[in-house]
Each structure stands twice: as structure tokens, then as C-alpha cells.
Amino acid sequence: LQLFIKTLTGKTSTVEMEPSDTIENLKAKIQDKEGIPPDQQRLIFAGKQLEDGRTLSDYNIQKESTLHLVL
């Protein structure tokens, strides 16, 4: 599924993920695209901070969801 990652600067990146992927996997993919180390990334979806060990489906993240990346 395609996700949009929006940064505080207003920049939006697109990443392709599976519902079974963990937040950790997602942060690794963001690191590949943006060069931001996972330990500096905080991802927010629906007002919640996402935890590394959980999966996208745990948070009911659907295709074309927008996640907010806070550093």
C-alpha cells in the first residue's frame, strides 16, 4: 500500500509498504529515502505516536494514509 509521509517542512514523500510491515520497517524505508536515522523519527497517525514493534495493520493504516514525521 502507498503511504504519504509528511514532514514539518510540508514536504511529502511516498513509500510503498505492506499492511504486515512494522513501524520499524517503515522508519528504515524513510531512512533510505530521506537519510533520517530511525531513532530520530517519530511518526504520528490519527494523533497517536506509532511504536516500532507494531504493524501498520495494528494501527489500521490504510492505503494512501498520510503519516506525520516529527524529528
Rank of each mutant, 00 (worst) to 15 (best):
L1R: 03
L1V: 10
Q2A: 08
Q2E: 06
Q2N: 10
L3E: 01
I5A: 00
T7H: 14
T7Y: 14
L8F: 13
L8R: 12
T9W: 14
T9G: 13
G10K: 03
T12P: 05
S13V: 15
T14W: 11
T14E: 07
V15M: 09
E16R: 11
E16T: 13
E16P: 04
E18M: 14
P19L: 12
S20M: 10
D21G: 09
T22F: 06
T22C: 03
T22W: 04
T22K: 07
I23W: 02
E24C: 06
E24H: 10
E24P: 02
L26K: 01
K27I: 03
A28F: 12
A28K: 15
K29R: 10
K29M: 10
K29F: 06
I30W: 02
I30V: 05
Q31N: 09
Q31G: 09
Q31L: 09
D32Y: 11
K33D: 06
K33P: 02
E34N: 11
G35C: 04
P37Y: 05
P37G: 05
Q40R: 12
Q41D: 01
Q41G: 03
Q41K: 01
R42T: 15
R42Q: 12
R42M: 14
L43Q: 00
L43A: 00
L43K: 00
I44Y: 15
A46W: 10
G47M: 04
K48N: 09
K48R: 11
Q49G: 05
L50K: 00
E51A: 08
E51P: 02
G53F: 11
G53P: 05
R54H: 13
R54T: 06
T55E: 03
T55V: 07
L56A: 03
L56T: 01
S57C: 04
D58A: 06
D58Q: 08
D58T: 05
Y59L: 05
Y59G: 01
Y59K: 01
N60H: 10
I61D: 02
K63I: 06
K63H: 15
K63C: 06
E64R: 09
E64D: 14
S65R: 03
T66V: 14
L67W: 02
L67N: 01
H68E: 11
H68C: 11
L69D: 00
L69Q: 02
L71Q: 09
L71R: 08
